[in-house]
Design a protein around this nucleic acid. Sequence first.
DNA 1: TGCGCAGGTGTTTTT
DNA 2: CACCTGCGCA
Length: 754
Amino acid sequence: MQDYLLPLNEPQREAVLYTEGPLMIVAGAGSGKTKVLTTRIAHLIHQGVDSFRILALTFTNKAAKEMKERIEVILGNHEARNLYIGTFHSVFSRVLRADAERLGYPSNFTIYDTDDAKSVIKSIVKELNLDDKVYKASFVYNRISTTKNNLYTYKEYRADNTIQQEDARSNRPMIGEIFEYYSKRCFKNGAMDFDDLLVNMYILLTNFPDVLAKYQHKFRYVMIDEYQDTNLAQYHIVKLLGALNENICVVGDDAQSIYSFRGASMQNIFQFQKDYEEVKVIKLEQNYRSTSTILDAANMVISKNENQIKKALWTEKESGEKIKLACSFTDNDEGKFVADAIMEQKLRNHFSNKDFAILYRTNAQSRAFEESLRRLGIKYRIFGGTSFYQRKEVKDYVAYLRILVNPQDEESLKRIINYPARGIGTTTLNKISIVAQEQNKTFWEVLCLATEAGIKGNTLTTIQDFVLAIRHFQSLLSKKNAYEVAFEIGKQCGIVKELNADKSVEGLARYENIQELLNSIKEYTETPDEEGEVVERSLGSYLQQITLLTDADQNNGEEEDAVKLMTVHASKGLEFPIVFLVGVEENIFPSSMSMYDRANLEEERRLFYVAITRAREKVWISYANNRYRFGSLISNEPSRFIDELPKALLDMSLAEKPTFKTTFVRSNPASNDHVIQQKKLIPKPTSTHNPPSDFVPDNPTNMKTGMKVEHQRFGIGHIISMEGSISNQVATINFGTMGEKKIMLNYAKLRIIE
DNA sequence: TGCGCAGGTGTTTTT
DNA sequence: CACCTGCGCA
């Protein structure tokens, strides 16, 4: 037997050796699926399969990179370098670079990120004279995105009665029209958004039989990780690519499907088994990651879901510590509590910073933890939020580079034509836009012929200078490398000078970001090609690549000794010795956006499952009674998911009293803990009011100044005043001995008494 | 055309 | 609370 097969258990080995024909690996959390995938690829190469002919699609670029490295270790050579491996989006963008022209796109097409796409939608809504409050960019974008991920074009969208009725009912009948304009505009700009990378790949394969044949022959083996998070477009592409050889191996876990908002459907898992006559299914059920306590808890929670493939995940590991439940008074206290707990664990049990992860449902929750960690001098690193390449100053600079490579890109052109300020305002911009529309020219073409567009005087000279400058840099590109050109742009256009002039903390950070951007270009373009390397190192490929970098990819190089902070989504595929899962409250986790129908709630539950199963040794679950949201204090109940955990696996000693760091005087220390414990497992120690058992909150829209209302925790009070917008009303309520409180009606549960 | 201020408005999750 | 937008003024 080969050495690399020795560390595998029976089903793992079977999965590695089963190389021919369709294979589905159902891999539970922590069951060694990455190990199986890497060993499987290594085995293929070892058996003599040409490494250029293996395609592996992963969820993040970082995962791809790690897999490559692990394969190199197993094989002891650099064969893995030739693999086609990466995310769907990055692999397809590479394929499309080669064949984009057949679809009428330039090979240096620009990739629009979500912000770019929304900005295009905004201009279209404006051009069509529609109300931007009704046609909010994010709403329209999501709808278009979902449609495209289901492989619907704007034509089909506009022709579909059901869709049109839906839009009519939501009072947004023009979405189809916006969709059409948007598609045409992107095409004219030589730009693809994230979804276009999938859609156009699909079109390329279906409309050009020779291209399909080329890739079907090229990719003799196809492997897909995280299959439960693929969408319909991805499903069809994979099916097409694998149709010739049918050597398709998908790896997934329905229990970890958490991206339905992006069009992912775990239906693809079930469909896979129907698509091929002789599909082999292998289940990996032994968990090597977590203690049995953690695993039992996770299994118990996920068992509440109706929609799932039954699995029996087990472990040989010891039971370990119970899951600690911790209750804090406010979100700030929660931050301090977690930082203290980390400090204590470090001192008492000799853990290092890098052993800890703090996982939350939304990015906005990170702040309290950042502050408290900083105060204790604990090094931390946040993953996610606005990524480096989304920062304004970086995007502005990148826009210059995009224009050099693809002058059709109107979006980027608008970004930089007046940055740094050179006196070209909205008036001129609109004028050019109109001429461009009328004469069916690109924005750039009109700029080049500014005289004909009726532009005169100073503005004309400015535009002509701008055009000359861009052309100069374009020609420079053939003489100098991308880094040198980028550097020249910063210098000659005065961007660097302008940023350097701002000596504020933020200004300094912006300046440093630009230096970092230049460094990254230098590193990318000046890395010598290794033998056999298939990566292209032009400015065009650099620009496409950076747009597709994910949060998980930003971890540059060696692992540093820092506490990791990230959303539960971002933690997928990772593991940590100790996990703090925080903000585990109703309205937050599960999110108030997804708790009102079964499918959404089940996805939240899977998310909870993912969070817990990240931990190897210890899990702390934390919630706060009150937290600041939009500036005022709101109260949330502990999450229903806490109730779903087996009591025997919980250590509730820290949840009996909330940790107080805030100065707060309890008006009635002799609270009624015992009553509440009977009613609900989770103690609510701050309760000083005992609501009747039939307490039903009323609709907040009926509440008016002067009313007498009952709050579950604060008791009876009078509404003194109401403020805030209609969608987000804040009431000031006098609760007598409990004092005056500002309450957000959308979140609080209030009952009208009279 | 550009800047400063007031007011409104919004928070899932991400390629 | 922060961020963004829109408006008024120089």
